[in-house]
Design a protein around this nucleic acid. Structure first.
Length: 801
RNA sequence: GCGACCGUGGCGGAACUGGCAGACGCGCCAGCCUUAGGAGCUGGUGGGGCAACCCAUGGGGGUUCGAGUCCCUCCGGUCGCACCA
């Protein structure tokens, strides 16, 4: 054995983590940074179980990118925080019977320790937690800005209600229509007054802006889908009683085929269209529909249910009287809550009409399609003057024709709903509103913020259906800030997604207690340069953040409309092909691996597992490969001769490696970047020795991936300065990277027959001449004339005979 | 049902705008070194012929001098949304 000390990751990592902290290595000057780079990763929810490998996978990839940018000369701000409010924490707290206010700090402490241990380049000066009153004071401020702008409104809306818990459930607590905690109790819907943000007013902008965002295409597709824009028309169906039923349809061309009308059971017109003799049946049906929970109500059931209301409405196109039905396959939240049913050209209407023996009238002819035919590639029939027109054109003409009589309006409809931010829960920031009998809902004056969440010994929900906060009398009863009369606080807390919709805006300004975000800091650091996170947040978090950014800009608080111009989604780490979850019991925790192998080895292993943006299957068998690689680098660095020229082939390989690692790290292809570094190390070992000149660039390339080891080896290689991260990313010489001979494939009729080694950039004629002289090639050309030559520079030549 | 994606050795995965399939790593095999090794080193490793060749990227078809890559079709899998009119 040589006299090289053995690589002891635990000692190396402890040493450098201490130095980084002492030397403030990871703390950029936020006020004076000349080249600011805001490297953001989605902050974690600090679960009781601690950081798991999925978190670490995401953070490692993002951290590598941040360190890479730092080495390229940017001043990188990489903050970390905790999304600690919300139903997860509250449920866990309920299950162990301890107030979340006591549990969360412990969880955060565990996360903080784990995050330091893995070596993230976090600027801990700017840590935040959404549960900190100093943070949620500004979450409440944000609510007030929307409230004052008329964007926070109160509406009645359905919630899941468990009659056993006597409380509101989140959708994820409803399992197949039953309460998660009472598997034999059916969940029902109840209607409560709740706070909504008017995100639908921004639907068009949220959709249009997607075009100019540099985001993973999968994420864009998810958002586009969620916003769900549909073009169509609102048509009016009149009842003899004088009521008019507006319906939304995307297929106005099929109006001649509308043979009945359906209202959602909650529709306000149900009363007016129900006849006396049908009243009992309709009431019974409404009760039945209400007893279903929201989730199963929406999941398409095989058999449809409904009830005839007793009255008829006039089809605006045909003038016919058609029956009005009440059925829960029509949803109150979409369109107008009422539809014209065209059973011949809509699957759901077809099912319903078949079941209840309602007439089915075909008005679109499509080649080779039987009913129900939903294609728009047909021509109209049985549609009066519009017969023979293609669907789309016919639809436009029908809308125009009906519009003359005030019976139709073209309009656009979105699936996106207003954002319900009310939670009838304990563990969240109280919504800063005071209800006064005289003044109505009144904003808490900003000087009185935060409305602190009081510590409540018994924080369990009770059978009142309102948040446990209502039980805290001193907190609940207040004076109206406007008239001074008796008033009560709003007891709903806000949605966790509101907390996380602006945390990135707070990070650079955490030390300012008197403002949510400092204008100068915000001007310098926002919008976020690169955002890396999982696709589980592709819709809600990212959509809400974009919405909040638009509002803040519109109200003059910030200078940008889109918070995350560049977003990359990482993949998922699975275990044995299945998603890791507590219930499956296959959650992998990194601590033991870090203990055994070191953080650097484990970081690189996670990145080598598969493509960062696709994820991979966690198998511990490969870890040793990374460790062997780092051991080799360690050995080479310690044995490197201080001086000495690089052999030509080593130099070429070095420049190729720099090129590959640079572009792969930039594109987050960490697995192939690591492979390239391994190849270089293999070459160095074949040559039999390393020089410091050959090792120094490697150590810098490796630094984002294995930061502690790189720091250590940088000093071994005689590096100056306090940190390898004060160095510059190596550059490569394109000429050197591509110099030397190349091997060219020689094909005859498209089949590989031989290989030639020629100088790079050889002329076609020379290569062809040499190819024709080749024995193997001669055998296959067999004296036949060459009809065609395909030559790809430095790659191949194909002779067609 | 709608939308997005994927299918390559024993395994994880490479392969730029079509151009030498299997980089890199794990595992496995052989040898070396060791009292010993779950350490280290050297070599080998898609399949078949055991050679000069043939066959191989889920199946079938097509475009092309040339297809893992493009097109059609079928099979299988993953994710998201889902009675959205």
């Amino acid at each position: 054995m040589s006299d090289v000390p053995s690589y002891d990751p635990a000692a190396v990592e402890a040493r450098w983590q201490t130095r980084w902290a002492e030397r403030h290595t990871n703390e950029p000057d936020l006020d004076r940074a000349a080249r600011p780079f805001y490297n953001l990763m989605m902050f974690p929810y600090p679960s009781a179980e601690g950081l798991h490998v999925g978190n670490m996978f995401a953070f490692t990839g993002a951290d590598i990118y941040g360190r890479f940018k730092r080495l390229q000369g940017f001043e990188v701000f990489e903050p970390m925080g905790f999304d600690a409010f919300g139903i997860h924490s509250e449920n866990y707290a309920l299950s162990v019977g301890t107030n979340p206010a006591l549990l969360i700090p412990q969880n955060i402490e565990t996360f903080r320790r784990q995050l330091r241990r893995f070596g993230g380049m976090f600027d801990w000066r700017h840590e935040l937690s959404t549960t900190d009153p100093g943070y949620y004071k500004w979450t409440q401020w944000l609510f007030l800005q929307l409230f004052k702008a008329g964007l926070a409104v109160r509406k009645r809306a359905a919630v899941n209600w468990c009659p056993a818990c006597k409380t509101v459930l989140a959708n994820e607590q409803v399992i197949n229509g039953y309460c998660e905690r009472h598997p034999d109790v059916k969940v029902e819907q109840r209607f409560l007054e709740q706070w909504f943000f008017a995100i639908t007013r921004y639907a068009e902008r949220l959709l249009a802006n997607l075009e100019r965002l540099d985001w993973s295409s999968s994420t864009v597709a998810l958002q586009r889908n969620w916003i769900g824009r549909s073009e169509g028309a609102e048509l009016v169906f009149e009842t003899p009683g004088g009521a008019t039923i507006p319906v939304f349809t995307t297929r106005p061309d099929t109006v001649f085929g509308a043979t009945y009308v359906v209202l959602a059971p909650e529709h306000p017109l149900v009363e007016a269209v129900t006849t006396e003799e049908r009243r009992a049946a309709v009431k019974a049906y409404q009760r039945e529909a209400q007893s279903k929970d929201i989730v199963s109500r929406k999941v398409g059931e095989k058999t449809k249910t409904g009830v005839f209301a007793g009255s008829y409405a006039r089809n605006p196109a045909t003038g016919e009287a058609i029956p009005v039905w009440i059925a829960d396959y029509v949803l109150m939240e979409y369109g107008t809550g009422a539809i014209m049913a065209v059973p011949a050209h809509d699957k759901r209407d077809f099912e319903f009409a078949t079941q209840f023996q309602l007439p089915i009238r075909q008005v679109v002819k499509v080649e080779g399609e039987s009913l129900p035919s939903v294609s728009e590639d047909g021509v109209l029939m049985s549609s009066g003057a519009f017969d023979g027109l293609p669907c789309r054109e016919g639809g436009k003409k029908i809308v125009a024709w009906l519009a003359e009589r005030g019976m139709a309006t073209a309009r656009v409809q979105y699936r996106l709903h207003d954002w319900c931010i009310s939670r009838q829960r304990y563990w969240g920031p109280p919504i800063p509103i005071i209800h006064c009998d005289r003044c109505g809902p009144v904003a808490v004056p900003e000087r009185d913020l935060p409305v602190e969440l009081p510590f409540i010994e018994d924080f369990r929900p009770d059978d009142t259906g309102v948040s446990p906060l209502a039980r805290h009398k001193e907190w609940y009863f207040v004076k109206c800030p406007q008239c001074g009369g008796d008033a009560r606080r709003e007891t709903d807390v806000s949605d966790t997604f509101l907390d996380s919709s602006w945390y990135y805006l707070r990070y650079p300004s955490t030390e300012f207690a008197d403002r949510p975000f400092d204008p100068a800091r915000t001007g310098k650091w926002l919008p976020v340069t690169t955002y890396i996170g999982g696709n589980e947040h592709a819709v809600l978090h990212l959509l809400y953040s974009r919405f909040i950014s638009m509002v803040l800009q519109e109200l003059g608080h910030t200078h940008y409309e889109e918070p995350f111009p560049k977003l990359r989604a990482h993949g998922l780490i699975v275990k044995d092909g299945a998603k890791m979850s507590k219930s499956r019991g296959n959650v992998v925790v990194p601590d033991a691996y870090i203990q055994q192998w070191g953080a650097d080895t484990f970081r690189m292993y996670l990145m080598f597992l598969g493509p960062f943006q696709e994820g991979g299957d966690f198998r511990e068998t490969g870890i040793v490969g990374i460790r062997r690689f780092l051991d080799k680098v360690w050995q080479l660095a310690h044995e490197a001769s201080p001086r000495g020229q690089l052999a030509a082939d080593v130099e070429r390989k070095l420049h190729q490696t720099i090129k590959k690692v640079t572009s792969d790290t930039e594109s987050l292809d960490f697995n192939t970047a690591i492979a390239a570094m391994m190849e270089y190390v293999n070459v160095l070992r074949e040559v039999g020795h390393g020089t410091r000149g050959a090792l120094r660039p490697l150590v810098i390339l490796l630094a984002p991936y294995a930061p502690h080891l790189a720091e250590e080896l940088w000093t071994v290689l005689g590096g100056s300065g306090r940190s390898v991260f004060d160095e510059r990313w190596p550059s490569y010489d394109e000429r050197l990277a591509t110099a030397g001979d190349v091997e060219i494939a020689v094909q005859v009729n498209g089949k590989l027959r031989s290989r030639l080694t020629v100088p790079r950039g050889s002329a076609q004629d020379d290569v062809v001449a040499r190819a024709l002289a080749d024995d193997a090639v001669k055998r296959f050309v067999d004296g036949k004339p060459v009809k065609k030559v395909v030559y790809v520079q430095d790659r191949l030549v194909n002779l067609v005979v």
